[in-house]
Computed example of a mutant assay.
Amino acid sequence: MEKITLDAMRNFIVENELTDSVAITLHPDSFDELVLEYLDTNGNQIERPFEILGIEILQDTTGNVPVNKVNLLDTVE
């Protein structure tokens, strides 16, 4: 993905037919930019947990996800 944006994330979720059995983790910089765009688009309101099209979006805390890359986590145990 060239740049993580709301539209790009929506397209990624739809194109990959993601369900709530996964979560998406993003590099902290990408996550922050996405959250700021989301807040701007939604009148400074954000849901907890942060979701797009029902898919939870998380900030990577491991340092393993590069900027502008998407990592999928299996949420089903």
Rank of each mutant, 00 (worst) to 15 (best):
M1S: 15
K3N: 11
I4G: 01
T5N: 05
T5R: 03
D7P: 02
A8V: 12
A8G: 09
M9Q: 00
M9V: 14
R10A: 00
N11H: 12
N11Q: 13
N11F: 14
F12L: 08
F12C: 05
I13S: 06
I13Q: 03
E15N: 15
E15P: 03
N16G: 06
E17S: 15
E17T: 07
T19D: 04
T19I: 08
S21R: 14
S21T: 15
V22Y: 02
V22L: 00
A23V: 13
I24Y: 14
I24V: 14
I24H: 08
H27D: 11
P28Y: 01
P28R: 05
D29M: 12
D29N: 14
D29P: 02
S30L: 04
S30H: 01
D32M: 13
D32N: 13
L34T: 04
L34Q: 05
L34D: 03
V35S: 00
V35M: 01
V35H: 00
V35Q: 00
V35I: 04
L36N: 09
L36Y: 07
E37I: 01
Y38C: 03
Y38E: 04
L39M: 07
T41S: 05
N42S: 06
N42Q: 08
N42K: 10
G43K: 03
G43P: 01
G43C: 02
N44E: 09
Q45R: 12
I46Y: 07
E47K: 14
E47D: 13
E47G: 08
R48G: 15
R48P: 12
P49M: 01
P49V: 03
P49K: 04
F50V: 04
E51Y: 07
I52A: 08
I52R: 11
I52E: 04
L53K: 06
L53R: 10
L53Q: 14
L53S: 07
G54R: 05
G54V: 07
G54F: 01
G54P: 04
E56C: 07
I57V: 02
I57M: 01
L58Q: 08
Q59Y: 13
D60Y: 07
D60N: 06
G63V: 11
N64V: 12
V65Y: 02
V65F: 03
P66K: 06
V67C: 12
V67M: 13
V67I: 13
K69C: 10
K69F: 06
K69W: 01
N71F: 07
N71Q: 14
L72S: 02
L72N: 05
L72P: 03
L73C: 06
L73Q: 10
L73D: 09
D74F: 10
D74Q: 10
T75L: 12
T75N: 11
T75A: 10
V76N: 10
V76C: 10
V76S: 13
V76K: 14
V76G: 08
V76T: 14
